[in-house]
Nucleic acid binder design. Sequence first.
DNA 1: TTTATGACAATTA
DNA 2: ATAATTGCCATAA
Length: 114
Amino acid sequence: MAGVFNTRVYEVVRRIPKGKVATYGQVAALAGNPRNARFVGYALHSNPEPGVIPCHRVVFRDGSLAPGFAFGGPDRQRALLEDEGVSFVPPAADRENTGSEGWLVDLQRCQWQE
DNA sequence: TTTATGACAATTA
DNA sequence: ATAATTGCCATAA
């Protein structure tokens, strides 16, 4: 099909439990390619399997998400994650948020762990 | 058909 | 310690 990696990513993202989030790097690593974090997002962009793959649970290593490419806006993603029980924390001021409302997912508590 | 770019992360200088 | 570069697969033009 459209590449093994792509299919692998979908499978991994689909495994992310509700209330948890995974970073691109983690998904890429589980997909078998720890260096392919870039294509993880591209895979979701290419064929996000609407309704099947929770793209909103995939966030940056910093805890933020893709600004402008979120299924409706970063604000929308925060609402979805909060609704699932994901904890949000204010920016560390040291780490400038990539595009969220200024709030980052608490990877310390909500990062998906296999 | 080939070339260039893309939701990032890790490594090396 | 920080900064800049590299790496990987797939898709679009």
